[in-house]
């Protein structure tokens, strides 16, 4: 029964929110709690979270910059590779051309040398042949004269050596 009267007494006060006798207690502890939260936040939590967020932002920015730099490096490396390739191709072409020219000139020289040799040999041979031919002509002439002489003698006529020679000479030069 006693509790009921206490409860009734409580009810007559109305809302516990409007029981001003508890206000000083609530306000005191609220101020303590707010100060505690304020010091926790401003001394520890907010600087820490702020620095973590800033650090993350910095890391992301750095990573992006590093990636950009690596990309540039890759492009530069590709350009260098392309240039080296082009240089090597040009060098190869040059060497091929040079070698070709060298071979050509060597070949030309050899050919010229060979031609000269051939020409020398040919003229030598021609000279020899001419010599032989001249020798042969003389021999033919001699043989012809002798043969004509013998034929004339065989025909039983007295042959005049000089006349026969003349006639043979005339026949051969014509």
């Amino acid at each position: 029964m006693a509790t009921e009267t206490a409860g009734a007494a409580e009810d007559s006060v109305g809302l516990p929110q409007l029981d001003f006798s508890t206000f000083d207690n609530q306000i005191f502890w609220l101020v303590v709690a707010l100060l505690a939260i304020y010091f926790i936040l401003s001394r520890i939590a907010l600087p820490r979270i702020g620095s973590v967020l800033a650090e993350r932002q910095g890391t992301i920015t750095n990573d992006i910059a590093a990636a950009e730099e690596l990309k540039h490096k890759a492009t530069a490396a590709e350009a260098a590779y392309d240039k080296a390739l082009a240089d090597a191709r040009a060098e190869a072409d040059r060497i091929v051309g040079e070698t070709k020219a060298e071979i050509q000139s060597e070949l030309d020289a050899e050919l010229a040398k060979a031609d000269a040799e051939i020409a020398a040999r040919t003229s030598e041979s021609e000279a020899a042949i001419a010599e032989i031919r001249d020798g042969a002509k003389d021999s033919v002439r001699e043989v012809a004269k002798d043969t004509a002489m013998a034929i004339v003698a065989a025909l039983g006529r007295d042959a005049d050596q000089s006349a026969v020679d003349k006639a043979v000479e005339k026949e051969m030069t014509s």
Binding site: N25, F28, W29
Partner: peptide
């Protein structure tokens, strides 16, 4: 209740 006393307000704050 005096202003400094520990109450359920104190606990939940």
């Amino acid at each position: 209740i005096a202003w400094y006393e520990l109450t359920n307000v104190t606990l939940w704050l």
